[in-house]
Design a protein around this nucleic acid. Structure first.
Lengths: 114, 114
DNA sequence: CTGAATCCGACTTGATACTG
DNA sequence: CAGTATCAAGTCGGATTCAG
């Protein structure tokens, strides 16, 4: 009964593993918007329309704990905190690009079938 | 103030639109397992380890309403129902492949940072 | 065998107010 | 500006029951 290493680690497959990191309502969008450039908290919040402070900081914390996002607190007054993708996060954000393009191509259909 | 069509349709960006379809705990996995071949309900349930009947049928219905999965009820006794990807669903499932590969490559790290 | 329907608790998300 | 605290609302997901 050879079991793949993926399953030994508790994942159904690689996709399942990846979803542990990007699974969450806002995480893919956060990665996507950090992909172009690192951003301050407020900038990010304006990009990810509709997210609340609570969710944004919580999901950023999750992403940071998985090592895909880095947080830099400049300890200034007024506060300044930058969020950026780590190299790992950058590689992850790249995998989201095809999904993003698919969404652009089919958005009319998606909008009409809600 | 020119607003992109994406925003007119109520989406932040293409990724946001795509997430309306695959956003959900099990939907990406369902698409992934249907990608190799169409499956009966029971087969699918065995693939997507841990999913309950309720969630599986609910999420299949969602996917069907978005036109990415097709349901074929053979109206037989005992019941036989097949699920398959539509061409649209196939194109969507393809965009998940890079994410799946990323997960395979980094699964040790993911498993350790929970 | 393939589901739909219902109940219920746990967890997630959201709105608002507040702090350094 | 960058969050935290609190409470309310919504969603998830399991167990059970039922139907064809």
């Amino acid at each position: 009964m050879a079991e793949s290493r993926t399953q030994q680690l508790g994942f159904i497959c690689g996709l399942d593993a990846a979803l542990r990191v990007v699974g969450g309502k806002w995480k893919p969008l956060i990665l996507h918007f950090l992909y172009s450039e690192s951003k301050r908290y407020g900038e990010l919040k304006r990009c990810v329309t509709g997210v609340s402070d609570k969710m944004l900081s919580q999901q950023l914390k999750d992403l940071e704990s998985h090592g895909v996002v880095s947080r830099t607190d400049h300890n200034e007054i007024p506060p300044r905190v930058d969020y950026a993708l780590t190299p790992l996060g950058r590689s992850l954000a790249e995998t989201l690009v095809p999904l993003c393009e698919w969404g652009e191509q089919h958005q009319e259909m998606i909008a009409s079938s809600v």
